[in-house]
C-alpha cells in the first residue's frame, strides 16, 4: 500500500474519529467478524432536519477500525440521500477501486482492497451502516 495511505490508515486506527458511545440514538447496529472476534457497533441519531449524527465503538484490527473511522468522516452530518451516495461509492470502490480524482479517504479505503482475505474486516462497519440505512428506510417519513 502507498505509504501516504498507510499512514492515514494507521492514524485513523490510533485516533479513530467519532469514536464513542451514544445515548438516545435513533438507530444502532452491531456487527461481528466470527473469524477473529472483531466487532463494531455504529450509532446514528437523526435530527428533525433529517441529518444524521454518527459514532461508533469497537475492537478489532487496524483495517477494521480504520475503515470504520474513515466511514464516520464520510457519513457524519449527512442526510439520507448523502448517506446513500456514500454507500454507493463504497460499493463501486470495492468493485472497481477509487477514481483518480477521489478524496484521500476513498484512496485510503481503496488501499485496503489489496487484502481480499480481510475484506470482512474492512466491510464490518459498512455492514452496520447498511443495516441502519435499511431500518431508516422502513420508517414512515
Amino acid at each position: 500500500m502507498n505509504e501516504e495511505w498507510k499512514s492515514l490508515i494507521l492514524d485513523h486506527y490510533k485516533h479513530p474519529r467519532h469514536y464513542g458511545d451514544m445515548k438516545d440514538f435513533t438507530f444502532a447496529s452491531e456487527q461481528h467478524n466470527r473469524t477473529c472476534g472483531d466487532h463494531v457497533k455504529v450509532f446514528a441519531t437523526i435530527d428533525d432536519q433529517g441529518t444524521a449524527t454518527f459514532s461508533f465503538l469497537g475492537a478489532g484490527c487496524s483495517l477494521c477500525l480504520a475503515s470504520a473511522s474513515l466511514m464516520m468522516e464520510l457519513v457524519h452530518s449527512q442526510n439520507k440521500s448523502g448517506i446513500e451516495a456514500v454507500r454507493q461509492e463504497f460499493q463501486n470502490m470495492m468493485k472497481k477501486g477509487a477514481s483518480p480524482d477521489a478524496i484521500d479517504t476513498w484512496k485510503a479505503l481503496d488501499g485496503l482492497r489489496q487484502y481480499p482475505v480481510r475484506s470482512r474486516c474492512v466491510k464490518l462497519a459498512w455492514q452496520a451502516l447498511d443495516e441502519i440505512y435499511a431500518e431508516w428506510n422502513t420508517q414512515k417519513p
Binding site: T35, G37, C61, S62, C121
Partner: peptide
C-alpha cells in the same frame, strides 16, 4: 491484533497464521 501482526510479517515475506485456528 493478530491480523495486523500477520500482515506486518507478510510484508517481510514471513508466513504465520492469525485467527481462531478452527478451534473457537
Amino acid at each position: 491484533h493478530p491480523h495486523d501482526l500477520a500482515a506486518v510479517c507478510d510484508s517481510d515475506n514471513i508466513a504465520i497464521r492469525a485467527g481462531h485456528h478452527c478451534a473457537q
